[in-house]
């Protein structure tokens, strides 16, 4: 009974922590973008503009939650929930520190891939259910983009799995005690980073929403809290990918002096900032460039990486 209560408490703390962090990221992103573009950003509400997030949330809660009459109502409501649910579920397998995590699944990495592949439905169904041309185009782009980049994402992680010999994320972190996988698996690290940006459809890969050609893409018809779920879901996705990069390639919680959790948090934070820097510095690609880059550059690279890693692992054993 006590064990169950502790487990429940951990789950609630992680859920609340993640929601707070991803909402806070909205403020962080605006401030960092402003810094890099030589302006101030939100700095009026509270200290350093920190309460801007609270103000935004209050605004979004009280906006009219409108469902267009031409939309497919049940699917329209379901779509924003899917991205939140799948992203939160992915966090279940991430070990934040030794013993701190929701579940230590022996197929943890596969679970993460499964959840990220289910997340595609959010974009696709939102685009379809909105029953408008911009949303549909955004949904189609989202489906093609996320489906393609999932392939490279999954394949790039198989090198890590080969070196560890396990799909368990804690085991993967433990296997990096001597050397972080970012060094022997550097190509896989770069490919995973790029695929991660494409999976969360962030700039420069935000073709599904591309506001200057598709209004707002798949969530053009959404308002109020449902739009807020897509918005926070995007930041949750960034946090998830950053946490996965930390776990898989940068030794997770491992590090000297500081407690494990702090190391995990610091490494994740660096990658979140990198995601924001990418947005600040890179222009958006064209859609055919995005697909050609994926299939013609990323796929051969990831297969070559897999081949070389496999050969080395075989030769050493």
């Amino acid at each position: 009974m006590n064990q169950v209560l502790i487990q429940l408490a951990v789950i609630i703390v992680i859920l609340l922590g993640l929601t707070t962090v991803s909402a806070g990221l909205i403020w962080l992103e605006r401030r960092l973008l402003a810094l890099w573009q030589d302006r101030y950003g939100p700095n009026r509400v509270g200290p350093f503009g920190l309460l801007q997030v609270a103000a935004d949330m209050i605004k979004i809660f009280f906006k009219e939650d409108w469902i267009p009459p031409f939309a497919d109502k049940p699917v329209f409501v379901l779509a924003p929930a899917i991205i939140m649910v799948t992203t939160f579920l992915s966090f279940a397998v991430i070990p934040f520190a030794p013993g701190i995590g929701i579940v230590d699944l022996n197929i943890g990495l596969l679970f993460f891939l499964a959840m990220s592949s289910l997340g595609v439905y959010s974009v696709v169904l939102a685009g379809w259910a909105s029953n408008s041309k911009y949303a549909l185009l955004g949904g189609l782009r989202g489906a093609a983009q996320m489906l393609s980049y999932e392939v490279f994402m999954g394949l790039s992680l198989m090198g890590v799995v080969m070196l560890t010999g396990s799909f368990n994320l804690s085991a993967i972190v433990e296997a990096q005690r001597g050397l972080w996988f970012v060094i022997p698996q550097f190509p896989a690290f770069v490919i995973f980073l790029i695929a991660g940006v494409a999976e969360t459809h962030r700039l420069p890969f935000d073709l599904p929403e591309a506001e200057n050609e598709l209004v707002a893409g798949f969530h053009a018809e959404y308002s109020g809290l449902k739009f807020g779920m897509f918005f926070v879901g995007e930041y949750l996705g960034i946090t998830l990918i950053a946490a996965m990069i930390t776990t898989l390639f940068l030794g997770g919680w491992l590090g000297p002096v500081l407690p494990p959790f702090v190391w995990f948090f610091l490494k994740t934070f660096v990658f979140i900032c990198l995601f924001i820097l990418l947005r600040a510095s890179l222009p958006r690609l064209r859609f055919d460039q995005l697909m050609a880059f994926g299939w013609k550059v990323m796929l051969p690279l990831v297969l070559a990486n897999l081949l070389v890693t496999g050969a080395i692992v075989l030769a050493r054993s």
Partner: peptide, 15 residues
């Protein structure tokens, strides 16, 4: 089952 059927093949169907 989730990755391939639910996450890839069915997405193509919906597409």
């Amino acid at each position: 089952e989730v990755i391939i059927y639910a996450g890839a093949i069915m997405v193509l169907f919906v597409f």
